[in-house]
């Protein structure tokens, strides 16, 4: 994809196998022309940093018993070479009896990194393990941060040369609090320096907002709740939305 003429990269977040395996693959296939990166969610029983909307999706996926690992195995063709970041909570990916990190890391062809939002908040001591595991599978690291992260930690994360550092703009996905996002993005940018990509997400729902936030110092923007909301009303509606976001960046 020609990024030279673009103001930033666009990613969409979609939980694996949502709304069903077939539509999921179709969404990947048809949106790949607009999207620089897919952020694929591992269905979780406890997606604590997500808002009610995405939580309901997780709940329905978990209770449907869909075999999302096999969906992940069969989706490579639909990805069309677009980069993938898997997003999953620590317990689901690296918890005691979970081999999911390993399974996913060895399954997805264009996987760049596995993002674990609670890693540095609830499982700080497991940072090295995460880094080691990522390098075992030849993938990069990527880190989730919020505006409540210590400066030193953020600067240190940048030194690991991750694929990106993801700033959660809001306290949870889908929320829309009156926070001075441009300022917070500016602080994050300063802390991580220029050599590492700054990704942003949570509550980005309009082309103007997308453009403004990317212009303020971020490199990649992820669209989650708003895309999924539209997807529930029809795949074309969702794709039209993503196309408008894509066009906003040209």
């Amino acid at each position: 994809m020609d990024l030279g003429s673009r103001d930033g990269e666009l990613g969409i977040y979609i939980p694996i196998a949502y709304p069903n395996p077939e539509t999921f693959r179709r969404v990947l296939g048809e949106s790949s022309q607009y999207v620089d990166i897919f952020e694929l969610g591992v269905p979780s029983k406890k997606p604590i940093y997500d808002g009610p909307y995405i939580r309901r999706i997780h709940r329905s996926l978990v209770s449907s018993g869909v075999d999302y690992l096999s969906v992940a195995r069969s989706m490579n063709r639909s990805l069309d070479g677009v980069d993938v970041a898997v997003l999953g909570y620590y317990r689901d990916l690296l918890g005691d009896r979970s081999g999911l990190f390993d399974e996913l890391a060895s399954t997805i062809d264009s996987l760049r990194c596995i993002l674990i939002p609670d890693l540095l908040i609830e499982y700080t001591d497991h940072l090295e393990n995460y880094i080691d595991k990522s390098s075992t599978y030849g993938i990069e690291t990527c880190f989730f941060i919020s505006s409540k992260f210590p400066y030193r930690l953020v600067s240190r994360l940048a030194k690991y040369r991750p694929y990106f550092i993801y700033l959660g703009l809001q306290a949870s996905t889908g929320s829309d609090l009156p926070i001075h996002l441009v300022r917070n993005i500016g602080v994050a940018r300063k802390l991580i320096g220029e050599g590492v990509k700054l990704a942003i997400g949570f509550g980005i729902n309009k082309p103007e907002k997308l453009r403004k936030l990317l212009a303020s110092g971020a490199d990649i923007a992820f669209i989650g709740t708003e895309f999924l909301r539209r997807l529930s009303q029809g795949i074309d509606y969702a794709l039209g939305f993503i196309r408008s976001m894509y066009e906003a960046l040209r």
Binding site: G51, L120, K148, P150
Partner: peptide, 13 residues
């Protein structure tokens, strides 16, 4: 918050 030894856990629903 910028100086805490660890990230401040976010509020949740």
């Amino acid at each position: 918050a910028p100086d805490l030894p660890k990230p401040l856990p976010p509020p949740i629903d």
